[in-house]
Simulated scan of single mutants.
Amino acid sequence: MSEHPSRIMWVFAVLSSPEDQGWQHVFAALAQTEWGAKNIDSITLIVIGVIAREDDIFRQAAEFGVDSVVIVDIGPLFGRTSTLAEACRVLMTREKPVVSLFSGGPSSPMTAFVAAEWADHLHGSLVFPASSFRVMPDHTVQTIEDVEVGVTQAVRTFREDQPMVIVWDAPRVSLQRGRGLHKPLPEVERLPISVSPQDSEITVLRQIPPTPQERALEDADRVVAGGRGIGGADGFAILEQLASALDAGLGASRVAVDQGWVSYAHQVGQTGKRIQARLYMAFGISGAPQHMEGMRNCDTIIAVNSDPSAPIFEVAHLGVVGDAREVAQNLAAAIGQRRIGEMT
Rank of each mutant, 00 (worst) to 15 (best):
G180T: 10
L181H: 09
L181Y: 14
L181D: 12
L185D: 12
L185A: 13
P186L: 04
E187Y: 10
V188P: 04
V188C: 13
V188I: 15
V188G: 09
R190E: 10
R190M: 12
P192W: 06
I193P: 03
I193Q: 05
I193T: 09
S194Q: 15
S196F: 00
Q198D: 15
D199N: 01
D199I: 01
S200Q: 09
E201D: 14
T203W: 11
R206I: 11
R206G: 03
Q207A: 14
I208G: 04
P209R: 11
P210S: 08
P210L: 09
P210E: 00
T211F: 14
T211K: 12
T211L: 06
P212Q: 13
P212Y: 12
Q213F: 13
R215P: 05
R215Q: 15
A216L: 15
A216V: 12
E218A: 14
D219L: 13
A220R: 11
V223S: 09
V223G: 08
V223P: 04
V223M: 05
V223A: 03
A225T: 08
A225W: 02
A225P: 11
A225Y: 08
G226M: 01
G226A: 08
G226F: 12
G226H: 03
G227R: 07
G227E: 11
G227F: 07
R228K: 15
I230E: 04
G231N: 07
G231Y: 04
G232C: 10
G232K: 01
D234K: 13
F236Q: 06
A237G: 11
A237P: 02
I238L: 06
I238K: 04
L239G: 13
L239R: 05
Q241Y: 07
A243M: 06
A245W: 11
A248K: 08
G249N: 03
G251L: 04
A252T: 02
S253V: 00
S253A: 00
S253W: 03
R254Q: 10
R254P: 02
V255M: 07
A256K: 04
A256N: 00
V257D: 00
D258S: 10
Q259E: 15
G260Y: 00
W261S: 00
V262H: 01
V262N: 01
A265E: 15
A265W: 09
Q267R: 06
T271V: 03
G272P: 01
G272E: 09
G272I: 00
Q276N: 01
Q276F: 02
Q276M: 02
A277W: 00
L279F: 13
Y280D: 01
Y280N: 01
M281E: 12
M281A: 13
A282H: 02
A282E: 11
F283Y: 14
G284F: 05
G284R: 05
G284M: 05
I285W: 08
I285A: 02
I285C: 04
S286L: 06
G287V: 00
P289M: 09
Q290T: 15
H291W: 06
M292V: 07
M292D: 07
E293P: 06
M295S: 12
R296W: 10
C298H: 04
C298K: 01
D299G: 03
D299Y: 15
T300Y: 15
I301E: 06
I302N: 13
I302S: 15
A303F: 07
